[in-house]
């Protein structure tokens, strides 16, 4: 219930109305949205129980490893009710063809696989917020100082998920396992997304904001 309360408000894409309609405009709008979403994710992380008690170094380590997983899980959850397309924001829904044109078709297909999985499971909001916090706590950062504190955080979240499933999804005793088994695909998808956006940086056609660049570099 705490995670539900601290769930951030929606953010919207802010396309430049004067820019010509082309692939660069779509990518520019997308990268600007991701940059603003990163600020939202960093502020959200502070409200995950136990996170703010970690050292600043460990907070940075977790976020630098997990930010793209958190971002993608949000994207996937928003996209669940839609037939097709990735709901980056309510006013920025990218369908297959648009993803192909901007060079993100491969990423689109992987994210779609994740969406299909969660759609079959009928992932609900409580599970979504818990998995998102788990992705943060389970980020396997190489630079963790206090391993025990991170383990406690993971245990706390695992317990919350187990409690929830025991009370709300009695009919399927394997449900929490099914949910946890989606996390490898989430990581794989996030890694692919990082590669895709690094390619966008290398191509140099799209202006990138500083925080987005900093987080892309931190994943190296």
């Amino acid at each position: 219930s705490h995670l539900l309360l601290v769930e951030p408000d929606k953010i919207y894409a802010m396309a430049d109305p004067t820019a010509p309609e082309n692939d660069v405009k779509v990518l520019t709008t997308l990268c600007d949205l991701v940059d603003r979403e990163l600020v939202v994710i960093i502020n959200w992380a502070k409200h995950v129980p136990g996170f703010s008690a970690l050292s600043l170094g460990d907070q940075m380590g977790l976020l630098q490893s997990a930010w793209m997983e958190v971002l993608i899980l949000g994207l996937v959850f928003r996209s669940l009710p839609y037939e097709e397309g990735l709901v980056y924001a309510d006013n920025l829904v990218l369908e297959r063809e648009q993803c192909r044109v901007v060079g993100l078709l491969d990423l689109y297909c992987t994210i779609l696989q994740l969406i299909t999985k969660y759609r079959k499971l009928q992932l609900d909001k409580e599970e979504f917020v818990t998995l998102k916090a788990m992705a943060l706590a389970n980020s396997d950062s190489m630079s963790i100082e206090n391993v025990e504190a991170i383990q406690n955080l993971q245990d706390l979240l695992h317990e919350a998920l187990q409690d929830y499933e025991t009370n709300q999804h009695l009919a399927d005793p394997h449900r929490s396992g099914k949910l946890l088994m989606t996390l490898p695909l989430l990581r794989q998808t996030a890694n692919k997304a990082i590669q895709s956006f690094r390619r966008v940086v290398t191509e140099g056609k799209v202006p990138m904001h500083k925080l987005f660049l900093e987080m892309l570099e931190a994943k190296a």
Binding site: L56, Q59, M60, A218
Partner: peptide, 15 residues
Amino acid sequence: KEKHKILHRLLQDST
């Protein structure tokens, strides 16, 4: 931490 100064600043920002 120098290299990741925006993240560092946002985490320290209490607002």
